[in-house]
Design a protein around this nucleic acid. Structure first.
Lengths: 258, 258
DNA sequence: GCATGTGAAGTTATTCACAGCG
DNA sequence: CGCTGTGAATAACTTCACATGC
């Protein structure tokens, strides 16, 4: 029960070298993690601009539409090299292409979704995925009622088929939308199938090998951060608490997706 | 088209003083933003520990179960004051209570959800919300097919009722799960209804007054960050790109939830 | 002239390492 | 003696401000 946290090694010490992959070439251009998330945002905005027929944008404009300030945007883009023209701005089409390349959109990304319950169904049907280059191409569940059912033209398969199906289908990204208790087992199956990137919606900490990347989306955490700010605004400073008429938080904590 | 970004002022210059609010009292305990998100995670883990009958945890254990290192956890908790016992650890129950207070769980949090489509339905039924103190208490949509329908015992109302219903129901948090183009209008209605915290699932940047807090959950961005790491691993360093057999990203970009 | 690209300064967050207390 | 709480050191990220080049 005391396994090491996400990133770190077994506990020995800090990692030996900055990059252990055998490529050996360039120091693998260090794009800061914070920058990567924003690149994805810029890419969407560029898509919208392109549809609107805009051919060129300044850092100021693109930044404004992305919700960041222009200096940050320029610094972010500078990690990819110079793709702007001084005194003019950026060419929308070519910057878009550059970002797509950088964000791995030139590799085919194949997404598998495990857990076709409440949330899973929504994710399976989420137009934003297919529309942005991440078509969900495989569905899995344990429920016999669901296995065999067609959703958006994709047949739900049993989770036991995950390793084989993922390996065969070249799945690069797995999404885990199962109840918490099932998540780790499912994750292991995905890893077994060669999946190296996992988006986890289950409220648990997934344990994975060092070469697998996990991102977690925790909706309750998002709400709680908002609740914090609500409390901050209303309750002001005090430490004493208002009893919140007639209802205590109580220890209810069933957790987990449906 | 050149509205100022989220936080900053009109753009004149740096703010005059460190704190311009008129409270004047304590510097309003500065809990770092990054810490707040983690407090929510600790709170969940504490709930699980409590259910397991654990009465005391060390920073090491709690940190491990939360996916952070122990120093960070201790520093995070230190912003709330000393609630641990040296040489022993933390009392699970009292720490849980303390965190609940800090995260606004002692105020009643009432959540309104706008957009009962694909994703909205899933969110409405997400057990994790109700179970963790965030019951969705109001549903809204524009679709006449949906208005009037009962979902989990809650009747869907028309979006035009948002201002009145939110004000009357004391809604503190609004969730926007509409298609992108509708999001801003919906957001305005929520703000009109007095909602000061919004969780936005639509792929657009919401424009709100300074006293309203918005958090954005963008699933495509999450996938793209993962895709970036996939590409980084496989494609290695090179700048030149593999044409990805037979399919270009193309300019398809319909975006938006169903 | 004008907007990019970038060193340098500033800010925020993480980690270290150890004093202090039960 | 063990584990918390925290100042100090480090690292990551952001913002500033201006040289650079079209």
């Amino acid at each position: 029960m005391s396994l090491p946290p996400t990133t770190g090694g077994p506990g020995a010490g800090p990692e030996p070298g900055p990059d252990s992959s055998s490529d050996g070439d360039r120091p693998a251009r260090p794009v800061p993690e914070a920058t990567v998330s924003r690149l994805a945002v810029y890419l969407r905005v560029l898509g919208e601009l392109r549809e609107s027929g805009v051919e060129t944008v300044s850092s100021e404009e693109l930044a404004g539409a992305s919700g960041v300030n222009s200096a940050k945007l320029r610094k972010d883009l500078s990690y990819l090299g110079s793709y702007g023209v001084r005194g003019v701005g950026y060419d929308v089409a070519s910057l878009q292409q550059r970002l797509q390349g950088e964000l791995g959109m030139d590799h085919r990304q194949s997404v598998a979704l495990v857990g076709v319950g409440n949330l899973g169904l929504a994710l399976a049907g989420y137009a934003g995925f297919a529309g942005r280059g991440f078509p969900v191409s495989a569905l899995f569940d344990v429920d016999d009622e669901l296995v065999g059912v067609d959703i958006n033209g994709i047949r739900v398969r049993h989770v036991r088929d995950i390793p084989e199906a993922c390996a065969a289908g070249g799945v690069t990204i797995g999404m885990v939308a199962t109840p918490g208790p099932a998540a780790q087992a499912v994750c292991d199956l995905l890893v077994q199938g060669g999946v190296q990137s996992i988006l986890n919606f289950a409220p648990v900490l997934l344990q994975v090998p060092d070469d697998v990347e996990v991102r977690k989306v925790d909706l309750s955490v998002e709400l709680q951060v908002l609740a914090f700010h609500v409390a901050r605004r209303q309750g002001a400073g005090g430490s004493a608490v208002v009893p919140a008429e007639g209802r205590e938080p109580s220890e209810t904590n069933e957790s987990v997706v449906s």
